[in-house]
Design a protein around this nucleic acid. Structure first.
Lengths: 136, 136
DNA sequence: CCCGACCTTAGAACGGGTCGATGTTCGGAG
DNA sequence: CTCCGAACATCGACCCGTTCTAAGGTCGGG
């Protein structure tokens, strides 16, 4: 489908130079950057962007539903642009490497809903990646 | 089964006054406290415990597998003593209320494992709790 | 050309978490 | 009982990701 930047153009949203480089930094598959990594990438394209603008823009994109925000064990939040395609995550508990994977959503029985209105499900498979499995 | 404190006694682990009040603060069902909440509770029972001891003790308990650590959207980590019984979480995206629920673990197909050695699965059902569903 | 709305900036402030130096407590050896 | 080393706890300083604030810039409509 249309890349992120193209979709943004179609919204009533001022696509400034800063916002564009930030959106471009988020483009691609298996991209799960921290705010700071986005900041670094954006700055390579436009050195005068500020950290605050990166945070502001990321939050706006999350609010519009163009990005998914997830909190990782190390305390830093990651941003995932892969919103079209339902997917879950496979994460290495040693090195933190994170991949998108496909799996069926688990169901939640009615008697377990406690009156909540269900919105979606996040699944994280915790694992050890080939590099981190004890050699042998 | 045995409460947390009793289990700890059975290990080769020095159960000091500080560690005991911290463990006691974690006892019960549907308990998902932040480190700071544990600190508050522990301090009510033993005013001179320090924050560092709370963090140290929580980490040790996580390492021994007596507690689960989970990172929540607000950046603070929560600690879950309910380790015996496999369970997942139901969380209100508005107020943050968090309940334990039971559901089947989703499976990860072999062709999605990318050579990782699978350890376990965390499932979070995102929802709105009865108090936060727009009235009507 | 000017104004108001919105966007961006730099840096200070904040808060959860971590670290290091120091003091305390415990249990076993003598 | 006393002493010693190891393990534990404390305090406060520090780190780092994130948020806030005050000020400056940019854009489009009137």
């Amino acid at each position: 489908m249309e890349p992120l930047v193209a979709r943004l153009r179609q919204r009533e949203w001022r696509l400034t130079a800063q916002r564009r480089v930030i959106a471009e930094a988020m483009t691609g598959e298996h991209v799960h950057l921290t705010a700071d990594e986005v900041f670094e990438r954006a700055r390579r394209a436009l050195p005068e962007v500020s950290r605050a603008t990166v945070y502001n823009t990321l939050h706006e994109l999350v609010d519009m539903g163009e990005l998914l925000e997830m909190s990782h064990a190390d305390g830093r939040k990651r941003y995932d642009p892969n919103v079209e395609e339902r997917h879950h995550h496979l994460v290495c508990i040693d090195c933190g490497r994170l991949l998108d994977v496909h799996a069926d959503d688990p169901a939640l029985a009615d008697d377990q809903r406690h009156g909540f209105e269900l919105l979606d499900v996040q699944v994280t498979f915790r694992a050890r990646c080939p590099d981190c499995v004890p050699a042998g």
